[in-house]
């Protein structure tokens, strides 16, 4: 069953220009953060949304949770369209869909004790009969994310615990309402490598235990290895390739995906020497003024004339494998 379906999602941010300029020019510049993104996530699956910074992956995550109003496009959650949902309906739906942010310290209120921060979603959605029951649920949850002794952590402030522990708190807060769907926005990017693998393991365990569906946003292909069933690669606000984890990793089609895969460090130094790195020339173009045609064509080693004309459509090569590149059409 498809839990989440996104159709042609678009988000443009207006660029602030100064007043005098605004008087004399008619043109309003926009940042094309997300430029027509479509994908589906099956219940219980994990989709990895991969791309470098500025590719629009974070904005996509925020749009799905309606933390940002989309400019165009439609979002379906559990078969229901949520794009036009009113504020109050959306607020109630938030119990079902949660987000884990990148920076755990910034996403916790510095003046709220950890226990209270985790209990607050229960209060908001009136889960649990009374305060004591809610407290029990929080303690249980804190223990589940390995914050022990939970009673002691309950009364601490975010500044008094370590980064990894903070992210555990954020995970506990996101999961206490037993959501179906969780967006993990670079959830482990700010932690050191040893803590990172522990947390990835925790997130995987919790996924099976609570039957979660993840949208795992990351710039780091290596972390998707442990957690993702499918991967969608984003570049300048568009999905350039989508497929199962194995397909993308062993047989990348799109030139950009190939470059990304080649940049993943190899644990074995000998294998690393043999591997050819395909770092694309130049930088990511400015999303205010994206290139015509395929967004990747200025950096693509295989660029042809046709690439400059119109952006290639995301074409299904085989079942569950989509690529947006003229090389495959």
């Amino acid at each position: 069953m498809t839990l989440l379906k996104v159709e042609n999602l678009v988000k443009h941010f207006p660029v602030r220009i100064n007043f005098v300029k605004a008087l004399f020019t008619r043109e309003r510049k926009k940042v094309h953060a997300v430029n027509g993104v479509s994908f589906e996530i099956e219940e219980g699956q994990t989709l990895g949304l991969v791309g470098e910074s500025g590719s629009g992956k974070t904005t996509t995550g925020r749009l799905i949770l309606k933390l940002e109003e989309p400019t165009a496009g439609r979002i379906f959650f559990a078969g229901k369209e949520i794009t036009s949902l009113g504020a109050e309906e959306m607020r109630r739906l938030r119990r079902e869909m949660q987000i884990i942010f990148q920076d755990p310290l910034a996403s916790l209120n510095p003046y709220m004790r950890i226990g209270e921060a985790v209990r607050h979603p229960l209060v908001i959605h009136s889960i649990g009969e009374n305060k004591r029951r809610q407290r029990e649920m929080v303690i249980e949850m804190l223990e589940r994310v390995n914050l022990r002794p939970a009673e002691e952590f309950y009364n601490r402030f975010p500044r008094q615990i370590s980064g990894g522990q903070r992210q555990r708190v954020v995970i506990a807060r996101a999961l206490i309402t037993r959501p179906k769907f969780v967006v993990a926005d670079e959830a482990v990017a700010m932690l050191d490598v040893s803590v990172r693998s522990q947390l990835l393991k925790l997130m995987m365990d919790l996924k099976h235990e609570f039957n979660l569906t993840y949208l795992f946003i990351t710039h780091d292909l290596a972390t998707t290895k442990y957690i993702c069933d499918r991967i969608a690669v984003m570049y300048l606000g568009r999905i350039v390739e989508e497929g199962s984890f194995k397909d993308i990793y062993t047989d990348p089609k799109h030139p950009y995906t190939r470059a990304l895969i080649s940049a993943v460090p190899e644990p074995d130094p000998k294998a690393g020497e043999k591997k050819k790195k395909l770092i694309p020339a130049g930088e990511v173009p400015n999303p205010i003024d994206p290139p015509s045609g395929c967004p990747f064509h200025p950096r693509c080693p295989y660029a042809k004339e046709v690439c400059k004309t119109a952006p290639p459509k995301l074409k299904e090569l085989e079942s569950g494998r989509r690529v947006a590149c003229y090389l495959y059409s």
């Binding site: 987000i99 910034a106 996403s107 709220m112 807060r173």
Partner: peptide, 25 residues
């Protein structure tokens, strides 16, 4: 701040955000 957005993400009403997340800060 991100924690205000996080409060919105857990479904807090504006009043709740104002009094429990903004005011203490």
């Amino acid at each position: 701040e991100l924690y205000v957005e996080a409060a919105r993400a857990i479904g807090a009403r504006n009043w709740t955000i104002l009094f429990r997340y903004v005011l203490p800060n």
